[in-house]
Design a protein around this nucleic acid. Sequence first.
DNA 1: ATCTTTCCCACCTAGGTGTGAACC
DNA 2: ATGGTTCACACCTAGGTGGGAAAG
Lengths: 222, 222
Amino acid sequence: RCMSRLLSAVESELQAGREKGDPTERELRVTLEDAELWRKFRQITNEMIVTKNGRRMFPVLKVSVSGLDPSSMYSFLLDFVPADGCRWKFVNGEWVAAGRADGHAEGRGHGGIYIHPDSPNFGAHWMKAAVTFNKVKLTNKLNGGGQILLNSLHKYEPQLHIVCVGSRHRLVSNVSFSETQFIAVTAYQNEEITALKIKYNPFAKAFLDAKDSTLPLPSHHH
Amino acid sequence: RCMSRLLSAVESELQAGREKGDPTERELRVTLEDAELWRKFRQITNEMIVTKNGRRMFPVLKVSVSGLDPSSMYSFLLDFVPADGCRWKFVNGEWVAAGRADGHAEGRGHGGIYIHPDSPNFGAHWMKAAVTFNKVKLTNKLNGGGQILLNSLHKYEPQLHIVCVGSRHRLVSNVSFSETQFIAVTAYQNEEITALKIKYNPFAKAFLDAKDSTLPLPSHHH
DNA sequence: ATCTTTCCCACCTAGGTGTGAACC
DNA sequence: ATGGTTCACACCTAGGTGGGAAAG
């Protein structure tokens, strides 16, 4: 009796549909969340800060997934693909290509792969709520681990990988969203990007308040 | 080539020994961390606060594990077993049994099971660092979920379950540590317990400083 | 009266922001 | 001189403490 309670607690992780057998991956669907917000940034060329210890992304990459087999086990991986072979420069208020990519040491610099911390987990887990990559950190120096190493002033496109971890690893899907392209920077170049980051990132609220205080103050009537 | 990089990223989760095949669970060993700290609390009868929204435990239950199969998948579960059939009272500086347990509704109240958030995961994952249950929350009201429901003024003993999630669920081990017994309370009864909590829990540092300021101040020499 | 619970609070831990000056 | 990077910092978010008054 004690045992059955235990097991049902484990099974409850699998509460979703569970139409067992058929890998329904034909119907796999991955949708980018906050797409409108991403497009606001993309429209004026998005930038992401890289630091020595790693900086989070904003907006946060978040996807909702359906069509996995609820009872199969998957890992979610994220990497950053160089979007072109250029080094970019911000001059006169716009980004312009300026020579070929540095490609640190090797021919094609690749910053490594970020494994979503919920990995590995059941299809049911990944589908029951949007999958958020808010903990991934971008860096320009190689240190400890967990962070993603990028070349500053190079353009990247985040790419999602869903891998089935069964008896044999099997790649299920690669998805990348062009809305999420950005240029890695050590400091923001375009002040319009800074303004958007401050407007929508709750952790930058201090600067949002500062901007408010520059607005005309309500006049004090006696 | 791109694929192999992906797969090796997944495999790296399994870096440990990987002496495949043999479930080496015969040699399973689970050790309580911070055992000396736990004993300090146990010696004067430990208490844990329960609140409506759930309160974390302090000390935190933390175990190091060895002897799992690195490449098998396990979940770690925690539950709280009534340590006796009594309701307890704190009178004249000591805890005394005061009547039989309330046992909310059913014959034997059981607060549910907490699933460690890293679950499910490879044996290698659970063994590469101590497994910490710092996020578990204790409550005296049933709400949302995730929290553990306990009866105030009743004594409990935390119990760890390691479950192998293969094609068929299989219970690997139940372990409980008598050092971690405690009485659930809505407010601390024994001021010695309060003092220990303040001394060792960094989140209570405010009160540690307050205690310091009541010590004789160093006299100012000119 | 007494015992137990609830609620708000000041004060922390822990860590995510862009800023602006300094550095290279 | 120029452009890119680094660092300390003030100011936030987010949430974990026990205290103490009030309520049940």
